[in-house]
Write a protein that binds this DNA or RNA. Structure first.
Lengths: 233, 233
DNA sequence: CGGCCAATTAAGTATGACGTTTGAGTCACA
DNA sequence: TGTGACTCAAACGTCATACTTAATTGGCCG
């Protein structure tokens, strides 16, 4: 969905990263550069650059005389988009989807409240447009088109919040929504109630009603959590 | 507060990173590797490794025949702890503190609610201990000791939430709290009301009262926002 | 048995050579 | 004069190799 292996070091990364995040090399495992050099049939330079990147993601730590050691899971930079992609592609995808959905449930309502205050007229218009797009694609097995509008809607909300930290979660939300459509049940058309909620959020933002926008978004994320059987107090 | 320049590439990073995030090299600027090589008096190997790391943070993009170009701010991996540190150390520290405080206000209450359900007895005990520690250090210019308990308290909440995404925000919160003590007013002792709120959160978690823990934490973060003059609806 | 020293190992750094991409300039032709 | 293809060179990308540094291991000596 984003970059792709241009350059050998990227190719190595796209092989090593998933191998680490998926547990093929569990925490504590030790890799040696010359071994990798041989395995990927590339030069030392390339391996070292890949290792440096993995190190900056806190996936590994490189120490002299010992090798490149995989770090414990708790220390990984789990907000790194690349790490998120690797983990979503791996075995603990369900677990990862839950974590991210909980994060969404915390962030998106607050973002919607802020968006209601700060959204530009253009952003309001975009929101409305995508909400209506969701309505018009919510029936008749148009899940692909529906997803496009859904993702765009949430991206606009996050961006319109005016908070860069929220805005950067757009990719994460996109992954979660895409993952849900691809992997989850979702054989059937989207829940009409959810569609309506999006329309009403767009309305609330347009009318600068922060409290309502937040509350409605909270309903949306609550629905997303329910889909994954996450705690329902 | 974390790693330090062990290795030349790390030294280069600690110089280039802040230079980019602080705007010394604004987006669109172009760096050439051989120029950097000379400026830092290190080999290509070292420069290239540093560049790879900056690239993985989405701070720069390296293209043939053109050089290493600084990317637009919106594309930076603003959740990377190292990027956060660099930006907090730079000129737009106030702006960064606001962004992060808003993020806290979204995440921490939800985390506290989850902690109330999931915290282990040990974590409950830790919470209580740090809350009491805050009480006992809240008077008489013991800001340093107070800060230690404050940071520890919020770390436990985030970790006890059982959500790895939340848990990894512990460092961010620590930076924000530390930054407030160091840079903000805070000449005077901490607000007694805030101290009391922490004690009550610990209580609520201990009593498994998720709604109360969430609401009380929302009050804490609202206070933090008020300190920074962030919107007060 | 314990502490100290040296040998070994694997990462870190430096350097020279070559390959590859691609922007930019040039030149010819319409 | 404008447009097209063609050439050139600048900058990164990759490789191979030699050397340096740090840390672990293990043996030697007290």
């Amino acid at each position: 969905m984003e970059n792709q292996g241009q350059g050998l070091h990227a190719r190595v990364l796209e092989s090593l990263g998933p191998a680490i995040t998926s547990g093929t090399y569990p925490p504590g495992s030790v890799l040696r550069t010359d071994e990798l050099e041989e395995r990927f049939d590339v030069s030392r330079t390339v391996i070292r650059e890949a290792i440096r990147v993995l190190e900056s993601m806190h996936l590994v730590v490189s120490r002299r005389r010992v090798g490149v050691t995989v770090r414990p899971t708790e220390e990984w930079n789990v907000y790194d988009p690349q790490v998120i992609r690797w983990r979503l592609a791996g075995a603990d995808r369900p677990r990862q989807l839950r974590s991210l959905t909980v994060l969404r449930s915390a962030v998106e309502p607050v973002a919607a409240g802020l968006a209601a205050r700060l959204a530009t007229p253009e952003q309001c218009e975009e929101l409305t447009r995508h909400a209506l797009g969701m309505v018009s694609t919510s029936r008749g097995q148009q899940l692909g088109a529906y997803l496009v509008h859904d993702v765009a809607f949430h991206r606009v909300i996050l961006r319109a919040s005016g908070n860069e930290m929220f805005a950067r979660l757009g990719d994460v939300v996109a992954e979660v929504l895409t993952g849900r459509t691809e992997h989850q049940v979702m054989f059937t058309d989207p829940d009409p109630a959810a569609v309506t909620l999006h329309v009403r959020v767009a309305e609330a933002v347009r009318e600068r009603d922060a409290a309502r926008a937040e509350a409605l978004t909270r309903e949306i994320t609550a629905g997303a959590m329910a889909e994954l059987d996450i705690l329902a107090p």
